[in-house]
């Protein structure tokens, strides 16, 4: 099924009750407000965005990079219009072990955290008291367009499962478009390349099948290299 592309102002429905994400109602008619793909059913009309910044929402797992160290916590860049605050009290490790805040996390360090609260002024507070949350000390972080995150995860996690099982590496996808990869260097490189392909082709069909083929061929290349190296040495 190919979805129709819409630009802001396109009429998408005449029933205001069907209006979903990416639409607005004026004069009893529903219009698209962003560039995206139209997803229309009898009861719901929404526009799947193709572009746009990450807007935090409570409960999202995000990857943040420390920008500022304060006395009581850290200010993190979460690739959004709004900086996020991680209070010292929301850091899981025993803080008596360290004497200074910047010895736990310093400027430039990355962490995986959860959005705990957003106040009406869009002040974002994070927490790390979750099982998946941890400071990122090893591995690689790649940044993609946050609108493409659902495609990287896939339907019920199918795409991410494919990458994890085929390559045997750790992957954590932040809702803000930052992705953490860890494992064998060559395999991480394949995954990184794969993620960029998914990002570029997010709005096309049959992506999972193509990615399976891509990873298989790349893995084949690694095997060939390994076979060649002992012969040369």
């Amino acid at each position: 099924m190919t979805r129709k592309m819409v630009i802001p102002g396109d009429l998408v429905a005449t029933n205001p009750r069907a209006a979903g994400y990416g639409t607005y109602i004026e004069g009893g008619r529903v219009y698209a407000k962003i560039l995206g793909l139209l997803d229309k059913t009898d009861t719901n009309v929404r526009v799947i965005p193709l572009k746009g910044r990450y807007i935090p929402s409570v409960g999202d797992i995000v990857l943040g990079i420390v920008r500022e160290v304060m006395g009581n916590g850290w200010v993190l860049d979460i690739h959004s219009p709004y900086p996020a605050f991680l209070p010292l009290s929301e850091y899981p490790e025993n803080r008596h072990r360290h004497s200074k805040v910047n010895e736990i996390l310093d400027i430039g360090d990355a962490v995986i955290a959860k959005v705990q609260n957003i106040d009406p002024k869009m002040k974002v507070t994070l927490t790390m008291k979750e099982r998946v949350c941890k400071p990122v000390r090893v591995g690689r972080v790649v940044a993609i367009n946050p609108a493409r995150v659902p495609r990287v995860i896939g339907k019920k996690g199918s795409m991410i499962k494919l990458l994890k099982s085929e390559l045997g590496i750790q992957i954590i996808v932040g809702q803000n478009g930052l992705i953490w990869l860890n494992g064998d260097r060559k395999k991480v490189s394949i995954a990184e390349e794969a993620i960029y392909i998914i990002e570029a082709e997010a709005h096309t069909e049959g992506l999972t099948d193509r990615m399976t083929a891509f990873i298989k061929s790349k893995k084949g290349e690694i095997k060939n290299e390994r076979r060649e190296t002992p012969a040369n040495s």
Binding site: P8, K51, G52, R53
Partner: peptide, 9 residues
Amino acid sequence: VDAGVAMKG
């Protein structure tokens, strides 16, 4: 539009 900014038209 290319930036994905929400607009009325």
